[in-house]
Design a binder for these strands. Structure first.
Lengths: 342, 342
DNA sequence: CTGAAAGCGCTTACAG
DNA sequence: CTGAAAGCGCTTACAG
């Protein structure tokens, strides 16, 4: 392995100063066109690449973004939330568009990630992806803010949280899926998914759900709702409890596709057919939802656009431009699980 | 946003020299225990982080690995090969274990990625993930090798390719799934998946398939095989062709789960029941395979172990230790699509 | 348009 | 065990 060439080597070969090499390679208009092209050609021939560490140190920025994914590490990596994976794909591509590198890291919500990346100049800013359902999330965000770290958060605008957020309208998503179910003739409903302070996404979906019910005068005295985190097992268990209570709603509104998958599985064990006896909806449009029996009606978040917005807004923030929160509309995906085969 | 503190600031506050601060923060045994602890405490209080660019520049390494994913960018990011996503998860976690950062980048096979990362000192080494099915892959690898770049490749050992590879035994995978089908009573077979020089993974699966058939004296004069890339559509089309030829094998061995999903869909349109009339197997054990109707028997690659091996071997390579190719065994996952309900 | 020089913030021989 | 000093490879004011 031969030593890497430096800009001095290139300067020597091109018969110019090292400063000129640096300028030529950054396409500075200050340098004569012919000189610039000659230097660039020699650099290419020599396989010379600017040393990023030196360049970053001098420029005091890294042209790198860090993506922090918060997720309980599952024993089986294949179970990584498909929605996040989809976001990762789109964020990666968006970064490439802007000539930024992307550092990816899985984090525990309770780690000390809030200080790590930008302070050490590894990255110019952070994208935070993961459900903000822990109590100290706000403190960490405040600390980031105080340190002057550039960051954007995936999620809905929340006055509790400092900083910029890009999200998908969970409230509206809860509304449209509920409206769809009402159109399909459902009169009584249950919502499966933890609706509480610590699960703002699910909470907003639930809120949209009950508000739409109220609009149609279908909201009972007490909305039926059972807690469940976003897993198949939790969906199964919550549905089990619902059925044990004797309730037999026309429609089950699940806060995520995984919950819906578990719910359908549970209904099957009780001989309750979907959509024949009960309609079931999910949320997220994960790949699996197109393959379940029945296929799952769900709500889609536009991950491609989300990734692009997260990256472009973070870059604006880094450049010192002002940025506003953004809430994307949710889209309905209608499949078999909510349509009675009349 | 206040200026970041430097090691000189910490030195000043601790009443020691900047060298001592640097040593203390890297836990050097050269520095007095009390001094070390005092310096570390002050650094923590000041929220001081070592500047990675400066540190890397001086140390001439980056403590960063780059993961290059080769994939035809799909218009829909949610369609990113789930197998790769699973690998990404496990690689990310493995990097964290070793205190390395991970740079993730989607690449076109025909880009000039082979020079980019290590030469610019952005990373100390590369992990190459993606099917090596393009003609110029070998040349690029050779170039990497010549440049002295550290890299490991996901895939089977191949004398055509320079460098270290970590892979899963596709040949054995093809064998065990075929043996399973034979045990289920299948006598005649078709293989769906491109088996050629440019698709070494599928080729090895196919080879394992026909060798196992030969072992059981079930290999016809001409093995039936239809080309298909790893998509649902290709699986559908190839199966269509197979059926059009009039062939009605007992079992369809598909080179990937996505192909199998397409194949089953096609069989359905022809009124051919799976597993009733024909057994169908996949490969990869993507999440969807547990939800199709029928659920799909398939072959699993241990992505968790794979990610760990890729990272640990790359780090060995970076340290100058010698590393050997490694081939992991494939595992059978038996579900409904290959078991006749007798 | 070009060059000589300073300096980004570290790590690590070197000297004590 | 500690400090003064060199130097990693760049970018960019400064001077011409």
């Amino acid at each position: 392995m031969k030593d890497k060439a430096t800009s001095f080597d290139i300067a020597h070969m091109a018969g110019v100063s090292q400063s000129t090499v640096s300028r030529a390679l950054s396409n500075s208009p200050l340098v004569n066109k012919e000189t610039r092209e000659r230097v660039q050609r020699i650099a290419r021939e020599m396989n010379y690449k600017v040393d990023k560490n030196a360049s970053n140190l001098r420029k005091q920025r890294s042209s790198t973004i860090a993506l922090l994914l918060f997720e309980d590490p599952s024993p089986d990596d294949s179970l990584i939330n498909p929605f996040f994976m989809s976001m990762l794909g789109s964020i990666t591509r968006a970064c490439a568009t802007f000539n930024y590198d992307l550092l990816v890291s899985f984090q525990n919500m309770n780690g000390d990630w809030h200080a790590e990346y930008e302070d050490s100049h590894k990255s110019d800013g952070l994208i935070l992806l993961g459900y903000g359902d822990y109590l100290d999330y706000r403190d960490k965000l405040t600390q980031l803010q105080d340190q002057g770290t550039h960051f954007v958060r995936w999620g809905a605008h929340d006055t509790e949280y400092p900083g910029i957020s890009i999200g998908c309208d969970n409230y509206q998503g809860g509304q449209i899926i509920t409206e769809h179910l009402i159109q399909q003739g459902a009169k009584s409903f249950a919502f499966i998914g933890t609706a509480g302070q610590r699960a703002p996404e699910f909470m907003a979906r639930f809120q949209g759900h009950i508000d739409m019910l109220a609009t149609h005068n279908l909201l009972p005295q007490e909305a039926i709702q059972y807690n469940a985190v976003s897993t198949e097992e939790a969906g199964f268990d919550a549905t089990q409890k619902l059925l044990a209570s004797g309730a037999r709603p026309n429609a089950l509104v699940c806060a995520s596709d995984l919950i819906a998958v578990g719910a359908i599985k549970c209904l099957k064990t009780h001989g309750i057919g979907v959509p024949r006896d009960m309609l079931v909806s999910g949320y997220d449009n994960i790949p699996i939802s197109g393959f379940t029996t029945p296929t799952l009606s769900t709500v889609q978040q536009n991950t491609k656009k989300a990734g692009e917005l997260l990256v472009s807004n973070l870059l604006k923030l880094i450049k010192g431009e002002s940025v506003a929160d953004y809430l994307m509309p949710a889209e309905l995906v209608i499949r078999e699980s909510t349509q009675r085969a009349d």
